[in-house]
Computed example of a mutant assay.
Amino acid sequence: MSLKLLVTQAEIIGAALKAVRQGLDAWLVTIVEITGSLPRPLGSMMVYSEMATLGSVSGGCVEECLIERLQLGEFPAGTARLTKYGVDADDNERYGLPCGGKLTLLVEALGARDEPWLQELHATLVARHFVERAIKLEPYHCSLNTTSMSNSPAVAWQQTCGVHRLGPEHRLVLIGAGQLAETLSALALQMEYQIIVLDPRQDKVDEWRGPDVSVQVLRGIDQLAGYADSHTSLITLTHDRDIDDNALFAAADMPYTFIGALGSRRTSANRSSRLRARGLSEEALARIHAPVGIDIGSKTPMEIAVSILAQLTQLKRGAMSQSAHSCLSVA
C-alpha cells in the first residue's frame, strides 16, 4: 500500500471518518513531542486503515514499522497510547532519523464511537476554520473546541493528556498555467502548500505538465473571491498584461494574506500606473508585492520559484511584520 505524504489535515481526518463509517479498523497517529531535528513538524498526522494510508510522521521507515505494529494488534480498538522512536542510536540508524532526533507518537485506535467528533472535525477543517482537540488517554476520550488563530505550538502534551491544534494549511493561488507555475507548484508542494492554478486560456490549462494540483480555467472574479482568505496567497505569473492586471485589480480588495506579481521594476511601475488609472486605491496598490520574490538575481524558472517561496517563508517565520506573521502562520 503506497503512502501519500502531501495531504491536508482535512483529507487525513476524512479518510479516518470514511473508514469508521464502513466499520473498518482505523488508527490516527499524531506527533505530540519532538526532540532535535526531524523531517516532520509537531502535530503532523497519519491515518492507517484497510482503505487508505495518508499522511506522514517521519517520511520514512517509522511508518513502515508502525503499520506492522498496528496490523499485529499492538494498539487495540478504543484505546489511545503513546509510543516513542529515536530513543537510542540504533533507533536513529534503523528509522533514518537525524542524529539525536526523537519523536513521541500518539496512536488513537478509532471505532464507531469516534464518528461524531471525526465528522465535526472534518467539516471544520473543510471550512478552513481553526479547532483544537483535547485528548485524554485513560480512558481514551477526544473532544473539540473552537479556537482563534494563534502562534501557539501545534501540540501541548502533558503525560496522559494534551491539546492538538489544527487549522487551514496555507494555499497558493497562481494566475497562469505556464512553466513558472509548474516549477513553483512542484517546490511549493514539498513545503506543504495547497496549490490552485487559474488561467483564462483553455489551451494553457490543457497543456499543463506540472504536478497533480488543481488547474482550472479562470472564468470570473467569483473564483478569485472563493479562495480569498487570510491563509491564502495570490501570485500572478502570466506576463500577459490584461490577465495579470485584471486578476490584481480584483484581488487587491479581497482578503488574501499576500498578493504578488511577477515582473521587472519597470513592468511593476507601469502596472501600478495602469491599475491606478482604473481606480484602484493607493491602499490597495500597496498590498501588491511587485516584483514578487526576494531579490537574489534570479533568472531561470527554478531560481524565480525559489525567490518567491523564500519571500513567503520569510513572512511565515516572522522576519517581517507581526501582522503578516500572524496571518501566514499555521495552527
Rank of each mutant, 00 (worst) to 15 (best):
L3Y: 12
L5Y: 08
T8H: 10
E11N: 10
L17Q: 04
A19T: 02
Q22E: 15
L24K: 12
T30L: 05
I31M: 06
E33N: 12
S37E: 13
P39E: 12
L42D: 09
V47Y: 02
Y48E: 04
M51D: 14
M51H: 14
T53P: 12
S56V: 08
S56R: 08
S58G: 14
G60A: 12
C61N: 15
C65W: 11
L66E: 03
L66D: 03
I67N: 01
I67P: 00
R69C: 10
R81V: 09
R81T: 13
A89Y: 11
N92V: 13
N92L: 09
N92Q: 13
E93K: 13
E93L: 09
P98L: 09
G100T: 04
L103T: 04
L103K: 03
E108V: 07
L110Q: 02
D114L: 05
L121N: 05
L121G: 06
H122R: 14
A127C: 05
R128M: 07
F130M: 10
E132H: 15
E132P: 06
E132C: 15
R133M: 08
A134K: 15
I135H: 01
I135S: 02
L137S: 12
E138D: 14
E138T: 13
S143Y: 13
L144P: 06
T146C: 10
T147E: 15
S148N: 10
S148W: 10
M149H: 11
P153T: 09
A154I: 10
G162Y: 00
G162M: 01
H164C: 15
H164N: 15
L166E: 05
P168F: 07
H170C: 11
L172W: 02
L172I: 07
A177Y: 01
A181Q: 02
E182N: 07
T183S: 11
I196F: 04
L198V: 03
D199L: 07
E207D: 14
W208M: 13
R209M: 13
G210A: 12
G210D: 05
P211M: 08
D212G: 11
V213T: 04
R219L: 10
A225Y: 04
A225S: 09
G226Y: 09
T232D: 05
S233M: 02
T238N: 03
I243S: 03
D244M: 03
F249A: 05
F249W: 04
A250N: 06
P255Y: 04
P255M: 07
T257C: 11
G260L: 00
R266Q: 05
T267Q: 06
A269N: 10
A269H: 09
R271I: 01
R271A: 01
S272G: 06
G279R: 11
L280C: 10
E282D: 14
E283H: 07
E283C: 08
L285H: 00
I288R: 00
V292G: 01
G293H: 01
G293K: 01
I294A: 01
S298F: 00
P301W: 03
E303R: 03
I308L: 03
Q314H: 07
R317P: 03
G318E: 10
H325F: 12
C327Y: 08
V330C: 05
